[in-house]
Amino acid sequence: MLLDLTGRTALVTGSTAGIGLAIAKRLAEAGAHVIVNGRTQARTDEAVKTIADLLPDATVSGFAADFAKPESLEAVSAAFPQIDVLVNNLGIFTQASFEETPDSEWQRFFDVNVMSGVRLTRHYLGGMVDRQWGRVVFIASESAFNIPPDMIHYGFTKAAQVAIARGIAESVPGSGVTVNSVLPGPTRTEGVLAMFDEAAKQTGRPAEEIAAEFIPQHRPASIIQRLIEPEEVANMVAYVCSPLASATTGAALRVEGGLLRNPG
C-alpha cells in the first residue's frame, strides 16, 4: 500500500514529540513537505533535525508558534500560505478533580485543544476546497466518549473536536476535502510517562510498576491490554491523509486498542 503524498504540504501542530512527531515522520516518509511545530524554536529545530537525520531525502520545515494564541495564525499564513494536509494535534492534559478545576483551566484547555484547530482549519479550508483536494485531521481521544472523571476538562475538549470535525466535513460536501477525527487510547508519550513519574514520586512506587498497572486498572476494557505506541496512531493518520482514504470523511477513527465497546 503506497501512501503517496508527494507534492503535498502538511502542517502538524504540536509535533516536537510523541504522537505529533510520529505523525510528522510518517507523512515525511510518504513524500509530503512536512511543517513541524512546537512552542519554542529550540524544540522545533530539534524535531526537524530528528526527522532530517532519519529521512535525509525528506523536505521538512519548522514553525515555532503557540497556536492557542490567535496572533500565530497571521504568522503561519505568511510563511505557508497553502496547506494541503492539516493535522490538528496540539493538545494538553492534566489530572484534576472537577471541584478543583477553575474557570481559567477550562478556558486554557478550550483555547489549546479546540480553538487552535478551529482557527487553522477555518483559515486553510477554503484553499483546499478551491483546489478540490485536502485533508484535515483532529487528533481527539477515546476520552471523547469515555470521559475520565479526573480529566473532565480534557474529555470535553476531545468530544468537541469529534463534533467539530464531523460538522466541518458536512459543510464541504463533494469538495474533495476530507475531515476526520482520530481517537487514540492511552499512548506511550512524554506526557503520559511524566504522569507515571509524578505518581511514582507521590507514592514511592517504581514508575515502571505504575505504568504496567495503568491499563488493567484504569482502562480494563482495552483488548490489547497495553499502552499504544505513537507510531501506531501515526499509521492511521497517514492513511487517512493519503489519496487512498478519499471516501473516508466525517468519521471518528479509533486507534484505542478496542476499549470503546459502543459501535460507531
Rank of each mutant, 00 (worst) to 15 (best):
A160K: 05
A200M: 04
G155H: 06
P230D: 00
F196G: 12
E213Y: 04
G185E: 01
P206S: 07
Q202W: 12
I215E: 05
I164K: 07
E209Y: 08
P186E: 00
T203H: 02
F156L: 14
F196N: 10
V237H: 01
Q225N: 12
G167R: 13
P184T: 07
N235C: 11
P216R: 04
Q161T: 05
E198A: 15
Y154H: 01
I224H: 12
I215W: 05
G174W: 05
A234Q: 07
T203V: 11
G155V: 12
Q217Y: 11
H153G: 04
K201D: 14
A194Q: 06
A212C: 03
E232Y: 02
V162D: 10
E231N: 06
P186N: 02
P206W: 10
Q202E: 15
I210Y: 00
E229V: 10
A211V: 00
A212R: 05
P149T: 13
E213P: 06
A221E: 14
N146C: 11
V179R: 00
N235Q: 15
A212F: 02
R226M: 10
K158T: 06
I224W: 13
H153I: 05
M151Q: 12
N180F: 12
P206G: 06
N146P: 00
L193S: 11
V233M: 00
A144P: 06
R166E: 15
N146R: 15
T203A: 07
E170N: 15
R226D: 09
L227E: 07
K201R: 15
L193A: 08
M236W: 10
H153P: 06
S222R: 05
G185P: 10
V162T: 12
V240W: 06
T157V: 02
V192N: 02
I147L: 13
M236F: 13
V192T: 10
V233T: 08
E213R: 15
G185D: 00
T187E: 06
S171W: 09
F145Y: 13
A163G: 14
E209N: 03
E209Q: 08
G204N: 01
A169H: 03
N146S: 14
D150C: 00
G176A: 03
P148D: 01
A238N: 02
Y239F: 14
L183W: 00
D197P: 07
V237D: 02
V192Y: 09
D197S: 09
S171A: 14
K201P: 05
I223W: 09
I147D: 09
A165E: 02
S143R: 12
D150V: 13
S171C: 06
E231M: 06
S175F: 09
A212K: 09
P173S: 01
S181G: 09
G167P: 10
A144M: 10
P206M: 06
M236R: 10
R226K: 12
I210N: 07
P173M: 08
I228E: 12
F145T: 08
R205Y: 07
N235D: 15
G167C: 13
I168R: 01
A212T: 04
D197E: 15
